[in-house]
């Protein structure tokens, strides 16, 4: 396979795994699917490091692998087991409409990026389409899920899309720093979830239940 094909295969797999995240209805498979997406992302970054001759991207790949493929899924699994969180994912919109909306979003991303990007390189352009799709699907997941853990997974998959875009942009500085910054952010979110639960502040991980206080309406 030539360079482009491999990059496309990996980036396309990321989008497919984003769809797969959308239809998971139980938390453990959701976490596993997310781990798989992060693994594919780490491979995609490794491939970019090879083709762009940018060895520093290997650090980003290592962070993605170590942190998001191994550590975060383990911690999340540990949290849902120890805090006895409901293992089903509470959804706001049904799976069918969500998948259809997801397909529309991917179509939107393609229409937008393909029309707008004649000026930049083919590799970067295709990557931007895939990256934007992953970002939009992640957002879709955040709005269609009530469960805090699945919202966090939605956020992390948005971040996967961003890292894909950043590594696809040739020679972009601060990619490693950005992935470190995001890892810190995610670590804080996960710790937050854990701390909220451990202090018995909330009876449920369902954000709608946390939302008893909704401000004044």
């Amino acid at each position: 396979m030539d360079t482009l094909t491999v990059a496309h295969f990996l980036a396309g797999s990321l989008v497919l795994l984003s769809f797969s995240l959308l239809y998971q209805d139980r938390l453990p498979p959701l976490i596993n699917t997310f781990a798989a997406q992060s693994l594919v992302l780490a491979l995609a970054i490794g491939w970019q490091a090879e083709t762009q001759h940018a060895p520093h991207l290997l650090i980003t790949a290592a962070i993605e692998f170590g942190f998001k493929t191994v550590l975060i899924p383990l911690v999340l699994t540990w949290i849902i087991r120890n805090l006895k969180i409901h293992r089903t994912v509470e959804i706001v919109v049904g799976v069918g409409p969500t998948i259809l909306a997801g397909m529309a979003l991917v179509g939107l991303a393609m229409a937008l990026m393909m029309r707008a990007t004649p000026g930049i390189g083919v590799l970067a352009r295709q990557d931007l389409v895939f990256a934007l799709s992953v970002v939009l699907l992640g957002m879709l997941m955040m709005v269609t899920r009530r469960n805090a853990v699945s919202q966090v997974i939605g956020f992390m998959s948005i971040e996967n899309g961003l890292v894909l875009a950043a590594t696809g942009a040739k020679g972009m500085p601060f990619v490693v720093e950005t992935s470190v910054a995001f890892s810190v952010l995610i670590a804080l979110i996960v710790t937050g979830i854990f701390l909220f639960r451990i202090r018995e502040r909330f009876d449920s991980m369902d954000v709608a239940v946390i939302d008893q206080f909704r401000g004044e309406r």
Partner: peptide, 13 residues
């Protein structure tokens, strides 16, 4: 961040 990356992609060529 996505916007920032896009601005970089525009400027890089």
């Amino acid at each position: 961040l996505f916007g920032t990356i896009l601005v970089y992609s525009v400027a890089q060529p």
